[in-house]
Design a protein around this nucleic acid. Structure first.
Lengths: 339, 339
DNA sequence: CCTCGTTGGAAAGACGTTTTTGCACTTCCT
DNA sequence: AGGAAGTGCAAAAACGTCTTTCCAACGAGG
């Protein structure tokens, strides 16, 4: 009893309020000329009845699909997407939640054109995660008249709309933090992948070293982005005649390997070595022993912002076309010296 | 030129074919009474014109949303940060692709009821990934009249529809493989989680041990599902008076930790210790040194099957309510003894 | 008192499909 | 030859909302 099988429609609301469906629609959407009193009354009745407009019908009349696509660009090289999956997962979920909140549904799409008009699914707009330089997908969608927002700038095109961190500033914050904790020889463990994130971080690191007048120590693991790679690379760093007293790793899995390499050699973290990495909100850094200090890139905020920006664009508002999402240094045991 | 701004509709096709829209619809959907000749002709004209039916309009008239939700159950919270596993990514993408292929869109939803009628998004059905025992979400959706398919069985309810691997058989295959490679004391490194996967594997392991008349060695790490946890647990196993000569780890991150624990103690893999784990198609196991032998659970097939099963249910076909997806033992260096 | 402008709200059309109903024409049987 | 059964297709109604148009009532100004 109470709720029937069929959802309550605009007609029932109109009947209950003693007005026409027109008035209900106007009241709910702030359109038309209605005295405030009527608006309020209709609204009250509507949500007392639990009225939810049928999204399909609305989409049909306003001529949209209500769908936005999210595609994780493949980067040509596989290892990246897999490694940083926590990042993508949080980003996607946040984007999806934000989209739902604004009346859209976010659909996950493979990179190989399930979004194109032919054979695929029709969407109003798309979010492309970390496009590569001159990403063909972006231009293909643009040509098809689909509004696109990217997370991470697309190198090679500055007219696009994007959401990104300021990796330069983030790197500096982390290096400053390590320095304040007493580090004098900070090494950067990065990756050989030629993506803009890595590029930005390495550049910021070298600039920071130059301005601090210290010698940069950069180590790029040869075994990919695995724990094992970090383990090996850390081993080499720690075997240096003058080993670093702090390491900033660009990917968390490298850091986990570093942690184990340190343990294997009896190098204590944080007492003998400070360790920090880039990561997400996930529990992994916290679970490590010692817990890892991270530069949190805030993928959730990136996802949320990307969805909001795209939807603003679709709804013909005129939002700022670029959004910079703040990073945050999360200090944990791995950089907390006992004294 | 050529394609105009507005997509071609059923009316244009009808005009071009010299028939009514009714006939076009019937021809395209295999309904009504039409001679095969007309059907063919209309179809030819339709895809020559590049006609794609408007999904929104269709959904409106057939009374569905065209949306299916995919929710990654939060598992109460702690150890299993959803997004940590490539497994989910592959599953989601495959499910999404399959759904699109059958005219549905898959939307990613947070576990905290963005799917419920109130305040959330309306969907026709939902896929729930790895529900916990008596998952509240499943019953909530069921009560709301939303068709549900789970990947992994839900312990505590056998009326549900699910897609799963045959973990019992998979575990046996792997144990047999290890045995054939010469292992005599095989340990199981597992996790305490209450999902059907872990449950099945441990049971299969114990049964196998019983039938082989060997003593089971089960180790559940205390530090969650991190590399660090695997490192510690492996350390304990290798310190036993009679250490195992093979380890099967239920999660890959445990295996990576195990690998490093072995290296730290000078235990050679695979010469002194065989190591295998469960994993996905990703490159991580291959990148490890030595490359890891894995039991591939085929998450892509799971996702695809889950979407297809759900859609069959929604379309009132009467599919088999349970689908078992085959596993595959992928042999790599970590169980390949030199002699 | 008449006209004009303003206000509140209703009626009707539109969005692009699917589906039901029904008409006209053929063929076949008796 | 007349009816029954079958065939090919079109017309029209729905699906649930938004939006445009338009009418009635009312007050104010001349």
């Amino acid at each position: 009893m109470g709720t029937n099988r069929t959802r309550v429609g605009i007609k029932e609301v109109a009947a209950a309020a003693g007005v026409s469906v027109t008035t209900v629609s106007h009241a709910l959407n702030n359109k038309g000329r209605l005295p405030e009193a009527t608006r309020q009354r209709v609204r009250a009745i509507a949500d007392q009845l639990g009225y939810k407009p049928n999204a399909t019908a609305r989409n049909l009349v306003v001529g949209r699909t209500g769908l936005i696509g999210l595609v994780v660009s493949q980067h040509g090289g596989p290892p990246f997407a897999v490694t940083d999956f926590a990042y993508f997962g949080q980003l996607m979920l946040a984007a999806s939640t934000a989209a739902i909140g604004e009346g859209y549904a976010l659909v996950l799409a493979p990179a190989d054109g399930a979004l194109a008009p032919q054979g695929g699914i029709a969407v109003d707009g798309a979010i492309i995660v970390d496009p590569v330089r001159d990403d063909p997908l972006v231009s293909a969608l643009g040509r098809a008249g689909i509004t696109v927002v990217t997370t991470g700038r697309m190198l090679g095109d500055d007219r696009s709309c994007w959401v990104d961190n300021d990796h330069i500033a983030g790197t500096r914050s982390m290096l400053d933090h390590l320095q304040r904790c007493g580090a004098e020889r900070i090494a950067l463990m990065t990756s050989p992948l030629e993506i803009s994130y890595t590029f930005d971080v390495e550049r910021a690191y070298r600039e920071w070293c130059a301005s601090e007048r210290v010698e940069p120590i950069v180590k790029a693991p040869e075994l990919g982005l695995s724990e094992r790679a970090g383990y090996a690379a850390a081993g080499e760093l720690l075997s240096l005649p003058e080993p670093p007293d702090a390491i900033f790793a660009t990917y968390d899995r490298l850091a986990y390997g570093t942690l184990m390499a340190a343990e294997a050699r009896g190098v204590r973290v944080p007492d003998d070595l400070l360790l920090a990495t880039t990561a997400t909100e996930s529990q992994a850094p916290e679970q490590a022993r010692p817990a890892l200090t991270t530069l949190n890139l805030n993928p959730e905020e990136i996802g949320r912002a990307a969805a909001s920006l795209l939807i603003a664009l679709l709804d013909d508002e005129e939002p700022a076309r670029h959004v910079v999402v703040p990073h945050r240094v999360v200090v944990r045991s791995s950089t907390r010296r006992k004294r």
